[in-house]
Amino acid sequence: MSPFSKQTTEPDKVRVRLYRFDPAVDRTPRYEAYEVPHTPRMRIMDVLNYVHENMAVDFGYRWLCSAKKCGTCAVNVNGSPKLACWEEAELEMTIEPLSGMQVIRDLVTSRDAFEALLATLSPTLVRKAEYRGFPEPLTAIQLAPTAHLRDCIQCLACQSVCPVLKQPDSGFAGPALLVALSELAQDPRDGGDRARLAGEVAQVFKCVSCYECERVCPVDIPIVGEAIEPLKRLVYQAGVVPGARHARAFLDVVKARGYLNAAVLALKTKGLTLNALRLALRLVPRGKIDLGKAFLKRGAPGAKVISKTYESSEEVK
């Protein structure tokens, strides 16, 4: 007898509520409920396939490989994006299209905006001089920073949960595009103007560092730490966009004073704007801004020591 026999306590069914919406004819989405027999190790995809195949429902859903390679089957399950082929079916599921994307029909969403933006980011290696032979001298160490980024299958789960992308006209490219860009930017072979693309086109400094993208990534890419922050550092070196100037001002204030003063930082970054004045009028009376401390007092006694320690690490890559 094999030690790998089936579990004895299989649940007998899965209850699923399926999002249905055909923009050509429907004014609002509706939900259809189905009960599907549970099968061993059942995935979300098995449930969708059962509804299509055994119940002959013609709902729209997209999948190609069903093996965690194509990244086209991500859907929202009980409100959270899941790769349908990869994740286990839950016993009660509301299945909806990824949020924040244009619905083509039912669970199928448009990938067009993502692809169009990717095409503008010089999405393949840009080289000053192409290496004609093979293999080019390269080492695993040189390529190590991009190792996890190469796992990306562009399922767009991260794009669907990014809170900045949910804001209209944010100008932000979103995590999946930044992963693609960062893979190139950190490739020792690449000579593209990645700082400009990251800073101005992808607007990397609009990332709020909320880590929602990492939470939903089916291939566990450390998106913030290994894709986004290296890009920010690249842009910082070039120093062209407001985000980079903000980081520079932040460091300057800390070094000069030994601690951060928010009012001084705001003044340095944005200057004296109407909004800043409004905010100051609100905060000064509450003691939230101490004008004396901000503009008269010198730094903390240890500021010089702190500054020196920091400086020894600033340039280290």
């Binding site: 290696l125 093979f134 080492t139």
Partner: peptide, 24 residues
């Protein structure tokens, strides 16, 4: 041998090397 792997590396594929740079 002569074109395929190099063509793809020119687009950004990286055929895995070890720390010394030998193809794995």
């Amino acid at each position: 041998r002569n074109e395929f792997f190099g063509d793809l590396e020119r687009l950004g594929v990286y055929w895995r090397r070890d720390a010394q740079g030998r193809l794995m």
